[in-house]
Amino acid sequence: MSSPSLTLPSPAPAAARRRRLLEILGALAIAGTYIYLVLNQPADITGGPGSASALIALSGFLVGAILLIVAVLPTLPASTLVLIPVALVLNIVLGQFVGSTLVPFYLDAIGTVLIAVLAGPAAGAATGALSSIVWSFFNPTVLPFAAGAALIGCLAGLAARYGLFRRFYLAPVAGFATGIIGGVVSAPVAAFVFGGTSGVATGAIVSAFRSMGDTLLAAITKQALISDPMDKAIVFTVVAVLVYALPRRTRLQFPFVRRHRVLAGTTNEPAAAQGSTQTS
């Protein structure tokens, strides 16, 4: 589809270096906030609501997510950019459908993972963060989870990059691992910004761990470790089913899929070129 422009000059290396710097700063902001919150946690949570750690969690994770968006968004080609709104809507529409008819999970990342598999980790991270920001238009409580959503998109893209979607049975395994990491990173947001969870069922699980004497952060992390890996394993499986159902022509219009041989049965570019010369 859209290829790098042949008539316009390519972006200067200085701009590319600045973007790389922004990416690194964004990742550092997220990682630093997480480490600070985990190290400092027990002092503050019961000392009064909404104190310093809520603000640190909110601003650190949000600044990190915004830096990632600023770094990635200008580099995406138009063919990927037009998929992002589609992914955001799919997150909502398919998530609701699966949640209401299939299983009692809240599968809200199908579109993000789909983009990550088709267009790579950077696009996946941007889609995850943008999804949270745009969805907060209707539900402001998802805004602080932008960093976690970006991480899930990035990890899904990396899983696709290293061939975990080539074997069908590896996709749920990759989803499970992504869910563990995503759940652990998102738990401080739930603990410090909300002081709990956003659903009644998850709240009951947290309450059970709390009454066994866990701190709030530990209880919420354990709850996330119960529900998130399962949730993401299902999401990755659904995405694998969807991607393999797409026609070959549609799959192969994405350079990321071609270059890294993301899917089984799709040959990479040099091999395809050889094949065409042999047949001609």
Binding site: A78, S79, V82, L83, F97, T101, L114, V238
Partner: peptide, 21 residues
């Protein structure tokens, strides 16, 4: 789910390609 989601995703990806062009 498969019967409904696949046509939806397929048509959306096709539309997005047209829009990108």
């Amino acid at each position: 789910f498969r019967l409904q989601a696949i046509p939806l995703v397929l048509s959306l990806v096709e539309d997005a390609g047209t829009r990108a062009a």
